[in-house]
Amino acid sequence: MIQMIKCVVWDLDDTLWEGTLREDEAGVKLLPEIAAVIDTLDQRGILHSIASRNSWEQVKNKLEQLGIAHFFLYPQCHFDSKAASMERIAKELNIGLDTLAFVDNDPFERFEVNYYVPQVHTYAAHQYRELPEYPEFQVVQATEETASRRQYMQARQMREEARKAHKGSREQFLKECRMKLQIRTARQEDYLRVVELSHRTNQMNSLLERIDLPFVESYCNQDSHYLYVAKLEDRFGAHGLIGTCFATVTEDRIDIKLFCISCRIEGRGIASAFLYTVLERLGQQVPQADAVRCLLVRKQRNLPARLLLEMLGFKKTITEDEQSTYMLPLPLPRMAFDWLEIGE
C-alpha cells in the first residue's frame, strides 16, 4: 500500500518562488500556479511546512505579503540541515517521516535528506505542478474534516505553545484547556471520516486495517454491531472527529473489532477516556457480559495501541502470527477522567 503524504515541506528560493529573498526581496515572486497547487493539497487535508535557510522574520513578511502565510505550520528557517528540519516537523506534527514530502530545487539538499532520512519522499522543484496528480497525494474522499485539518493543527499548535508556557501541574493545565469529548454512535455523515481515519492512522490503529465506505454502511446495518465516534473541542478550537471504535456484543461478551484514534490528540489521555466510555456504555446494554475481547496486530508502528489496551487493564491471552488476543474481565476497573468533560 502506498503511504499517503500528510505534509509537504517546501524550500523557498527558486522552489516556492523565483529569486533569492536575501538578495532581492522586492523581486521575489511566486512560481505560476503554485498557490493553486498549495490550495488544492490543503483542501485534501495535506499540510504544508517550510525548510529554508532564510531568516524567519523576512520569510514571514514575504509570505504575508504574498497572502499564503496561513498555509504553513511549524516552518523551519535556520542553518541546520534540512534533514534535521524534516525530523522536527514530523515530531511537531506527530506524523511519520514516511508521510512527509520534501520539495527543493537543489539536488544536494534532496540527496542529503534522502541520505539521513530516507523515509521522506523527495521531489525536484520543477515537479510542483504534477504533485496533486501523484498517487501518494490522493485522499480517499475529502470530508469536512479533511478541509479543516490545517485549522485543527493550528489549534493544536496553539495548545502546544500554551503547554510550554504553563507553569502549574499537568492536571491543572489539562483542566484549563477545557476539553469536551463527545462520544456517541456514528451517524451517516460521519462514515466518510471513519473511513478516512482508518486510512490515516497507524500508531493507534488496532489492526492496521484500512476499510471502505460500503464496509461501514453494511456494518452499521447489522444487529448488535456498534460504531462509536469521538469528537473533541477545547478552548483553542474544534479538533474534529478524532476517534472511532467498531464493537459487537453478544450476551456474555463485548468485542472491540477495530479502533482508530488520531495521533494529533496525543498527550492528554483522550484515547483511554474514549475506549473506556465506549465499554462503559456497551456494558450498560449487556449487563450480563463478563469480558471484553480485542484483537490486536502487534507491529512496531502501532505500539501505542497495544499500550493503550494494557493501560485499560487488558491482558494478552493468545498470540498467533502477528495477531494477539487481549481480554479484559468485566465489570470495568474504576477510572476517572476528571480533566475532561465527557458528553453524548
Binding site: 515530531k91 493507534m204 496525543e266 492528554r268 484515547a271 483511554s272 495501541a305 499500550l307 493503550l308
Partner: peptide, 15 residues
C-alpha cells in the same frame, strides 16, 4: 508515569 495518576499517555510513552 503510567496509570491513573500517571503523566504519560500511550502515544507520549512511545515518543
Amino acid at each position: 508515569l503510567v496509570g491513573n495518576t500517571g503523566v504519560l499517555d500511550s502515544m507520549t510513552i512511545v515518543r
